[in-house]
Simulated scan of single mutants.
Amino acid sequence: MKYINYPAGAIEAAWQARANTAASTAAQKSGEEANAYIASRSEIWSDLKPVLEGLSSGKCWYSEAKDRVSYWHVDHYRPKSLYPWLAFDWRNMRLCGGMPNIAKSNDFPLNDETTRATAASPSTALEVPLLLDPTQWGDPDLLTFNGAGEPTCADPRDPLSALRVKLSVKLLDLDTEKLCEGRRHTWRSCERRLKDLRGIIEAQRHQNNTDAGDRLKDLCRDLDDLYDETSEFTATAWACAKELNAEMIVRLAKEVARSL
């Protein structure tokens, strides 16, 4: 999971006008009638998919995977069944692969259920969601990964952080073998190249070896690709760099690659 900058300027005025009209109409209804109306206007949030894809370079906001073989879903972070007044609010919408969205369903646990907003008291300011939010600064940093591609908590000593990561992994199916396999591949690709590059730098510090220079350039290009924001599982790539104490090597590789 990586932080997603979600600026208001990304939303077109025409889309916002449609959403406002739908929200106003929904507010005039109640119960099943309101739910039926909201469901009937799903094209409004579906039409937001291209914008959401652009903000994440075509990756699921929760898993960082590129969902090439199934349709993208627009997830309502706060489920519309529990927060119908947010059904057409762009700030509540996240691009999501089909698997995490289906797994999440209508679950949205809070640290304190007594603070849950209602239609009569709609402010969510007092809520502390247990589900990590990719648009909330600091939340993505709580989720990291190990060499097996498994999701773990970056701050396991903090009980709330550990609980939030545990529940997020469970609710979003972030520990499926398909995802872990992809992260393992990224980790191993990064690990091999970071170690090779570190070895070349140390061995060639005072030498001028053309072959080593060419290999160094190739490694820098590869690492620049692996750590590019458009690539899958960049959070895993950075977890690998941190494990190897190689963050500076990554930054050096990216600078070299962009100078070639």
Rank of each mutant, 00 (worst) to 15 (best):
M1I: 04
N5R: 12
P7A: 01
P7Y: 04
A8I: 08
A10C: 07
A10R: 15
I11R: 11
A13C: 04
A14E: 15
A14Y: 09
A27C: 05
K29D: 03
E32R: 11
E33G: 04
A36M: 01
I38A: 01
S40N: 07
L52P: 04
D67W: 13
R68Q: 09
Y71E: 13
W72Q: 06
W72Y: 04
V74N: 07
Y77Q: 10
R78H: 08
S81W: 00
Y83V: 03
Y83A: 00
P84R: 10
A87K: 05
F88K: 06
F88E: 02
N92Y: 11
N92T: 08
M99L: 15
M99I: 13
S105N: 11
N106Y: 07
D107V: 11
P109Y: 07
P109A: 11
P109N: 09
A117T: 14
T124L: 10
E127T: 07
V128T: 15
P129S: 09
L131R: 09
D133V: 06
D133N: 13
D133E: 07
T135H: 06
L142W: 09
L143C: 06
P156I: 12
D158I: 13
S168N: 12
D173I: 00
R184C: 02
H185V: 12
H185S: 11
S189A: 12
L197W: 06
L197A: 01
I201D: 08
Q204P: 03
H206C: 05
T210N: 11
A212Y: 13
A212I: 08
G213A: 05
L219P: 02
L219F: 00
D225M: 09
S231T: 12
E232A: 12
A235D: 08
W238F: 09
C240K: 03
A241R: 03
M248S: 13
R251F: 02
R251I: 02
R251P: 00
